[in-house]
Design a protein around this nucleic acid. Structure first.
Length: 875
RNA sequence: GUUCGGGUAGCUCAGGGGUAGAGCACUUCGUUGACAUCGAAGUGGUCGGAGGUUCAAAUCCUCUCUCGAACACCA
């Protein structure tokens, strides 16, 4: 039984295994076609070890693979560097949860045992993600797979830290940071501000001298224990006399001063603000300006301390109600209003984040200065370009980056404190022998670890061996990698990590290597569901890429993502689109089946000469498609490149090439060669089916022949554009088909028809005749130089066709011609309007003028024929 | 509030100074062996609105309406 459907499941896994075994993905996998001096490098954004493949991964890795396969086939020494990320908080949380289920904690286990546990789990989990990646058909250099905490990268992290530390760019100090009572210190971008329904509490603060009170408004009454001032605006007439007075905090005996600071917004609230320097970012600044006391009222877990008086021991958020109730009982609450405001939440656990004074490590913002300048000088280019605006606006407001995290899983900060003399120093060694200052052997390492993004920031060069020492050199990296692959040619990632990752790589890459880490930075958008909603578990609209691979195929999923990936636009994923592209793969399968029904195997284009008229026409179209695909891929217009392939293969090769070949079977061998070439062009998008059909048509099999993935990517050949005759042929065919519809004989075989085409030779006519008569289904087709009487005709762009007829209903024909006339009249009006405009004639470029003149002439000629026909019919 | 992106055929979206495009849907027709996951021929749009620049604007500029995102915010 001959099968009409392509079965991807049979081929995909098998081919992938062979590719990987043969090391095609590695740097020299394409050795035979590599060209001197052409290098290409792209780093895989390392997915979390804890992760499972989601649709966003599918998009980003598909795009990366398309470019990688394109470059590899185009003769570049190609590095696509794979790896996974240790993902500090996420991973630690997973293992902590496991421990909880076992009834124990990390504290009970101890740091060392806990880390052993995480490593064990990492070994188990990392393979899942990379295995899932393989189902997508991606082709990174797996033999070089890295992990952000592997031995070599640990060395490079230490190397970079120590460098920055010694330069004074990494510093430790007491600052106000974003504090999560579960996860510890967070950087600014790890805080998510969300609209929250809260309350606005108006509280009376009595004057210390008993002469009355003042009303302050706050959203966080539980922090008032830390108030060390009350402030008003210096220009606020209402409160001018209060400045300098003292108030007594409710329920406490503590007195604080009323101060004046321009930070206060007179219009907002009561115009009187409580100042809590230890628990509010703005108040922190005010506190420094006015030299106020900094009183911290709760501990790292959010438990109120002795400053909270009777409320000591309560959790900060749970305490709020209790505190307000007591204040109300004592008559300090004036009113409570509903108030919507932005509250910072921990990106990881959604806990409310507190501004909190804490001793942390910071990377100073000065490290970024040169990278910003170089980016704006054009050293790196964004795709789409508008992203440089976001990059700049964020870089412009850059603050010191808090890089220490209160976790155990991660790169432990390589700084040691001497227990005896207090000396602090950074060291490459895991356990330095002794204090370099006092030689004491009692040393303690800083317990914190680095923000996960610190090691990710080094990824574009740490994976090339930078700072790795000789750990696994010649295996995980080569000594000339930095020379060959830095800066990376391209970065492809989602815009959502522009600040987290891209900006940090830019600063670190520039700082350590004097050059920005990328030439091009392509930022893609989000994948949404068919209604444009974000995919989420709670919505239940998540599309699992692995399900799609199973149901459709990796090729179909990849192609669907690529053809939807217009720069800067979100992608809507739908089964409708997947089905459309499944139909496309089926079309390809059946096209090759047709070819093989006629010819068994087909030659490669190299050294083969296409000679038939039809072959030369299709070759000309392939050249055009090749040019377009290359151009679009070079500009990262994945959607356009994919669409060119789709249209060429379906609407040109199948709809016309194959159909026309039914009138010239001798051309089929050439069409097969052309189709094989097109498979190479399509291969980066659909690696599996192209491999399959390529071998099928070559009479080979991947088991005993080289893969299509290391064949040369098509280039435009020297053949001249040669399409005119077939444009005439196709126009005539369509014209006759239209005329047949008119006489209600659509798609039927007819006895007789005439074609009138001006200015072609007898030889051309002879060549064209079989094509037209076969595809238009005309038994006896003749060329004519004159109008045929008693016929229905169709006036097309390039020809006029006639079908003789005796008794037919003319009404629909007249209607159609009238409509055609109206349309032409409109067109003529528009064109002659332009051409009668002196300024247009004076200013427009000659080719445009020429084009418009000939368009006008054509339209007029066509209208004349239409009118003539109308007249004849209306007689 | 600042910045960015969208508003194009019934639907989903490309395109982005030189006569408006695709897929789906719709109408009509068609299975003698590539493919019904198909083929043929069609219908359908004053490109959110108003100004402006230009010989020429869906495209560039200004304003405006509307949807979305990022960043920043007032206790």
């Amino acid at each position: 039984m001959s099968d009409n459907k392509y079965n991807p499941q049979e081929t995909e896994n098998r081919y992938y295994k062979i590719w990987e075994e043969r090391k095609y993905f590695e740097i020299d996998g394409n050795k035979a076609i590599q060209e001197e001096g052409k290098n290409f490098s792209i780093m895989m954004p390392p997915p979390n070890v804890t992760g499972r493949l989601h649709i966003g991964h599918a998009l980003t890795f598909t795009l990366q693979d398309i470019i990688t396969r394109y470059k590899r086939m185009d003769g570049y020494k190609t590095l696509w560097q794979p790896g996974t990320d240790h993902a500090g908080i996420a991973t630690q949380n997973v293992v902590e949860k496991q421990l909880l289920a076992e009834g124990t904690t990390k504290e009970a286990l101890g740091r060392e045992k806990f880390l052993e546990r995480v490593w064990a789990w990492k070994e188990e989990s990392a393979g899942i993600m990379t295995e899932q990646l393989r189902y997508m058909g991606v082709s990174p250099a797996w033999e070089r797979e890295r992990f952000t905490m592997d031995t070599g990268l640990q060395k490079s992290v230490k190397e970079s830290f120590i460098h920055l530390y010694n330069e004074g760019l990494i510093v430790r100090g007491n600052y106000m940071v974003n504090w999560c009572t579960h996860d510890g210190a967070l950087s600014d971008i790890e805080v998510e501000h969300e609209d929250t329904d809260g309350k606005f509490y108006h509280i009376t603060y009595p004057f210390a001298d008993g002469s009355g009170s003042v009303e302050v408004a706050t959203t966080r009454p539980e922090t008032y224990f830390g108030d060390t001032a009350v402030m008003v605006h210096p220009d606020d007439a209402r409160y001018k006399d209060l400045i300098g007075k003292e108030i007594k905090l409710p329920l406490l005996e503590r007195r604080v001063k009323i101060i004046a600071d321009a930070h206060v917004d007179m219009e907002f609230g009561t115009g009187v603000v409580k100042v809590t320097p230890a628990h509010d970012q703005n108040d922190y600044e005010v506190g420094k300006r006015h030299d106020l006391e900094f009183i911290t009222v709760f501990d790292e877990k959010g438990i109120l301390n002795e400053y909270a008086g009777e409320f000591q021991g309560l959790e900060r958020l749970e305490a709020r109600e209790t505190i307000v109730k007591r204040l109300d009982e004592e008559g300090f609450i004036v009113k409570i209003e509903d108030h919507k405001h932005q509250v910072g939440h921990c990106y990881r656990c959604k806990n409310i984040v507190e501004p909190y004074i804490s001793k942390q490590w910071f990377l100073r913002k000065e490290v970024a200065t040169a990278s910003i300048e170089k980016t704006n000088a054009g050293e790196a280019q964004f795709f789409p370009p508008h992203w440089i605006n976001s990059y700049n606006s964020w870089m412009g407001e850059l603050r010191d980056w808090c890089i220490s995290r209160q976790l155990w899983w991660g790169h432990q900060i390589p700084v040691f404190y001497c227990d005896d003399c207090g000396h602090e120093f950074a060291s490459q060694e895991d356990a330095p022998e002794s204090c370099p200052k006092c030689a004491s052997k009692h040393l303690t390492q800083d317990p914190d670890v680095l923000d996960t993004w610190f090691s990710s920031a080094l990824w574009p060069f740490s994976t090339l061996g930078w700072g790795n020492g000789d750990v696994e050199m010649d295996k995980l990296f080569q000594s000339d990698d930095m020379k060959n692959f830095y800066p990376n040619t391209l970065l492809i990632t989602g815009f959502d990590i522009l600040f987290f990752w891209v900006a940090r790589m830019m600063m670190m890459g520039e700082h350590f290597n004097g050059q920005l880490p990328f030439n091009h930075i392509y930022l893609h958008a989000l994948v949404r569901d068919e209604h444009g909603n974000k995919m989420s578990k709670s919505r239940g609209n998540v599309i699992d890429p692995l399900d799609m691979v199973e149901k459709y195929s990796a090729d179909i999923l990849r192609f669907t993502l690529a053809i939807s990936a217009a720069q800067g636009r979100d992608i809507r994923m739908s089964t409708e689109k997947l089905e459309q592209n499944r139909n496309f793969t089926n079309k390809l399968y059946n096209a090759s089946k047709y070819l093989q029904m006629n010819v068994e195997t087909f030659p490669d284009m190299a050294g083969f000469c296409v000679e038939s008229d039809l072959g030369r026409y299709m070759m000309s179209r392939l050249n055009f498609a090749t040019k377009e695909v290359r151009k679009n891929l070079d500009e990262y217009k994945f959607n356009d490149a994919a669409l060119v392939m789709y249209k060429f293969l379906w609407n040109e090769f199948c709809d016309w090439g194959i159909e026309l070949s039914k009138a010239d079977k001798g051309a089929i061998v050439e069409l097969g060669a052309i189709f094989k070439e097109a498979m190479k062009l399509l291969h980066p998008f659909m690696p599996f089916i192209t491999e399959h059909l390529y071998h099928q048509l070559s009479g080979t099999s991947l088991d005993d022949a080289d893969s299509i993935m290391i064949q040369k990517f098509p280039s435009k050949t020297k053949q001249r554009k040669e399409e005119q005759k077939f444009e005439l042929i196709m126009d005539a065919i369509v014209s006759i088909r239209r005329a047949k519809v008119l006489v209600d004989l659509a798609n039927q075989k007819i006895e007789k028809a005439f074609v009138k085409i001006e200015g072609i030779s007898d030889k051309d006519k002879e060549m064209m005749l079989p094509f037209i008569s076969k595809l238009a289904k005309v038994e006896h087709l003749e060329f004519t130089d004159t109008k045929i009487e008693n016929s229905v005709s169709d006036i097309s762009d390039l020809c006029v066709t006639f079908i003789p007829t005796d008794s037919i209903d003319l009404a629909p024909i007249i209607k159609k011609l009238t409509k055609q006339d109206e349309k032409l009249q409109k067109e003529i009006g528009k064109l002659s309007g332009m051409l009668n405009n002196e300024r247009f004639v004076a200013n427009a470029p000659e080719d445009v003028l020429e084009k418009n003149r000939s368009l006008l002439a054509d339209a007029k000629a066509k209208q004349a024929k239409v009118l003539e026909q109308l007249e004849a019919l209306q007689k």
